[in-house]
Amino acid sequence: MIEAKNVSLVYENGTVALRDVNLHIEPGEIVYITGPSGSGKTSFLKLLMGIEYPTTGRLKVMKQTMSKINASNIRRLRQNIGPVFQEFKLIRGRTALENVMLGMRFLGFPPKKMHEYAVEALKNVGLEHKISSLVDNLSWGESQRVAIARAIARRPSLIIADEPTGNLDIDNAMNIMDLLVSFRDQNTTVIITTHATHLIEGREEGTFIRIDNGNLSIERKGEALV
């Protein structure tokens, strides 16, 4: 699914975001990335989505070499990713359902199926009662759950969630984590970044990546992993 060999990312202003990253992630794997703010977590996700390109090294995401990828392949790659952005990136003036469906409209789903998947995803995140609410009127936590519903409704091969639990209370945060992790059962790779280490401390399966100052340390737990 993801293969990184000696990948580094240095921004134009000289800031080193990632150093010499070597990593191999299989389909269906669950990956937790932790680290303090500014450690390089979001930069790593940007590399996976083709928002940034590696400065050196070779990064392959879903068989696409990211340094050589063209615009149309980036689009295709992103269509297979369910992203949950830190700042949600919901479309204002539209309902929760419209926002979730928006992520699926160009993926070739028939309208009925699209509606069914979107409603199901909103139910999964506990927002069935807010389907017709404008996202402008939703609370911070509800908006976050709409963003998650948008990511999961499109049945992606890879879910990338950047701080998906944000400022949620511990119970809701745990529920969201469990929901995201449950997608590995469908052979979906799930990558979650979080600064809240207590949310992953008790978890017994997965790849645990700690990023500090652009350097990665990786620990793998559980039988299902490579």
Binding site: M49, P83, G103, F106
Partner: peptide
Amino acid sequence: RDQINTLKLLGAPQPF
């Protein structure tokens, strides 16, 4: 522009 940017991050084709 924000909405367009989001659509691009979701992989929306340019004609869409």
